[in-house]
Nucleic acid binder design. Structure first.
Length: 211
DNA sequence: ACATTAAGTGATT
DNA sequence: AATCACTTAATGT
């Protein structure tokens, strides 16, 4: 039941009336790993409330070069989507399921109404906007100030936390795409990390020993 | 056995 | 840190 799923997190922060409304208008969906949820240029019709799993949010330039910005996890929502959605803008970001995830989709139309009606909702949105902004700043710091070797290690340890598994099933090429660098560079730096005993390398698999 | 894909490496910019 | 060019290793058919 939807209500039971909400209990895990949202019941604590939302008043019962709001929970009832979420159940009434929200669409529960289970998405598989690698499923595309929102592409660049899409218009928003729904806002996601994350129940479980993780969504990778990335940005792409006109050359098709991609860069990962941050991840959405349980209890998160994409407030950028929310504010853009109210103005019916097109998405500037892409969201892909990083792992199997459970999400409730709320139609945009309801959100403005709830802003006025429920202060728990208003608080939630403001709070979420703030954490999204902080994640964005962290992403900028990483891009601007960290060298590639540090970025790769950060990427690995972030991913371990999100997947809740120190063994990552990924290729060097995939990492290169997420960080917008080349496979050769990734391979070399991973080798370096292996020599420092921070990780162990296998084919299609990386074991992170330190994170 | 052969083809395909992932990963490792030296040399160059 | 990127690119090239090539090698080696693992895996699929």
């Amino acid at each position: 039941m939807l209500k039971d799923l909400l209990n895990e997190y949202y019941n604590i922060i939302f008043e019962p009336e709001l929970i009832e409304e979420i159940i009434a208008v929200g669409a529960y969906k289970k998405v598989k790993e690698d499923e595309l949820l929102l592409d660049i240029g899409d218009s928003f019709e729904y806002i996601p409330l994350m129940l479980s799993g993780a969504i990778k949010i990335s940005r792409e330039n006109d050359k098709g070069e991609e860069i990962v910005l941050y991840f959405l996890e349980h209890g998160d929502t994409c407030t950028i989507t929310f504010v853009s959605g109210l103005q019916s803008n097109k998405s500037k970001i892409r969201g892909v399921a990083e792992r199997e995830s459970e999400i409730i989709f709320i139609p945009i139309a309801k959100l403005e109404e709830w802003m006025i009606k429920y202060h728990s909702w208003r608080e939630y949105v403001i709070d979420s906007y703030n954490t999204r902004l902080n994640e964005m700043i962290e992403a900028i710091d990483t891009l601007a100030f960290m060298k590639m070797d540090e970025r790769i290690f950060k990427y690995l340890s972030d991913k371990v936390k999100i997947m809740r598994d120190p063994v990552l099933h990924t290729t060097h090429q995939d990492i290169a795409i997420d960080l917008n660098t080349s496979r050769v560079v990734v391979s070399r730096l991973l080798k370096q990390l292996e020599n420092e005993q921070k990780i162990k390398l296998y084919r299609n698999k990386i074991e992170v020993l330190e994170y």
